[in-house]
Nucleic acid binder design. Structure first.
Lengths: 251, 251
DNA sequence: ATTAACCTATTTGTCAGACCTTTTAATCTT
DNA sequence: AAGATTAAAAGGTCTGACAAATAGGTTAAT
């Protein structure tokens, strides 16, 4: 068996049998004693193994499930299994948390635009080297959409998001993709919300197109420079918007 | 009350009253209906409100607690409270998951070094502009440690980690810090483990020192270039190590 | 023989109620 | 007024039961 079973019950234990069980199971997973798709003992078995009640085991399993480490199914062939870690799930968790940090003001607009400019410039450079024909097609498909002047703002922002997603994808670099989830799923929506009210679409699309061309040509530095200019323009819009709001509290 | 209460109980619901409760509470938090440090009703109250048992409520709360959205304390003045989202907790979650992704081979060494080189170069550029005297002191403290030739490999790696952490800190850019958690807490330890067996410490420290000096001088481009060279050197070590292992399966 | 319907065992999901432990605050004692 | 005692509130755990889903085997009908 790949599980150990000593829970601290006396001494300086800060409450939490379920936490301790979760920690032990997590350790078993990250240390490889439990491999992907391994099946854990059923809940009664775990309860017996750890010497706690089934309710406690279930709380522990919920913790691990919330961290995308395990999944459960009912039925005879069911049970609890170690999950393959998926960047998707992790990404949305990052995005959620980043959204909260923005909401509480722990992350400011200025810094966000700086981080976007720098990291997306990196993506441009790498994409220029690694992009495939499919990547370029995906980028251009979004450009075509964005040229449509009848597109609603909402749809435009969604397309913008997909454009940046495709750009990250074009780097074909998994760890970078992981890091960029925070930008793509959280920072971009937030910045767009504040900025695209000013209908600066055309300028934006022109820059997107220039970036795509540079990526297509394999000219990383130029693509990066264009992206930096793009974000610099947004920074200008931001300060303008804030000034206007500060001056006239209209409507 | 900031909570709604309609749970789907019939139809195409894929199991999970506890999941639904957690989702509703999470929504209330991210949409701001529940603010930081707000106190939720007690578990019996929540059970009544959602029309489920207390066990189900507890499982839901464990899910949210695992995502660092709430915390609980016992006693009369206790209860369940909305947590201030902390980058720390999120960072370790990212690091855990990234570690797993590395373990399963979903993330390769080559790509990791590329991502490190690019993103840490970004940090160099920003740090050169924003670093304070304290930041420089922290960087130089680690350098002094690393000069000690009697330092064990383990300690050296820990100091290296702190150096890079301090570099990120010196950017004073919260969103970037958030993104760099994956690099700092996961990618760096993994790369170090594979590479510092070859005792290339001196070269490494020299580059670290040059980077620090460039950051101190406010010369971002030079710091970034040095960092890129540093990582390029590690890439060379990596291929050498792999070649040697492929050739001689010694010991 | 093949298919459809049914049963059954296994496993997670939920419930109800009880008791334990921790913590705070009010009360009592000195 | 200071300290000790106690009661109440809240989360933490346990127990035992039942509900629901599901894979697999069994039976009945075609």
């Amino acid at each position: 068996m790949a599980l150990r079973g000593e829970l601290q019950t006396g001494g300086i234990v800060r409450d939490g049998l379920s936490r301790q069980v979760a920690d032990q199971l997590r350790a078993a997973i990250v240390e490889g004693r439990l491999k992907v798709d391994d099946r854990l003992p059923n809940e009664d078995g775990l309860a017996q193994h750890f010497g706690v009640s089934r309710a406690t085991i279930r709380e522990a399993l919920k913790i691990l499930a919330a961290q995308n480490l395990i999944r459960s199914r009912r039925g005879p062939a069911g049970g609890t299994f170690v999950s393959r870690p998926d960047p998707q799930g992790l990404g949305s968790a990052i995005a959620d948390a980043a959204m909260l940090l923005v909401g509480t003001g722990d992350i400011g607009m200025e810094d966000m635009l700086t981080a976007r400019a720098e990291t997306e410039a990196v993506c441009c450079r790498l994409a220029a080297r690694a992009r495939t024909a499919d990547d370029l097609a995906a980028l251009r498909a979004e450009l075509a959409l964005q040229r449509d002047p009848t597109l609603r703002d909402e749809e435009f922002c969604a397309s913008d998001l997909r454009f940046h997603r495709a750009l990250v994808q074009a780097t074909h670099n998994p760890p970078l993709k992981l890091m960029m989830y925070a930008v793509i799923e959280s920072f971009i929506p937030v910045t767009n919300m504040l900025i695209y009210r000013d209908h600066e679409r055309r300028l934006s699309v022109d820059l997107h197109e220039a970036i795509t061309d540079a990526v297509a040509a394999g000219d990383g530095p130029r693509a990066a420079e264009l992206m930096a200019r793009h974000l610099e323009g947004m920074r200008g819009l931001l300060t303008a918007t804030l000034d206007r709001r500060a001056a006239g509290p209209a409507v």
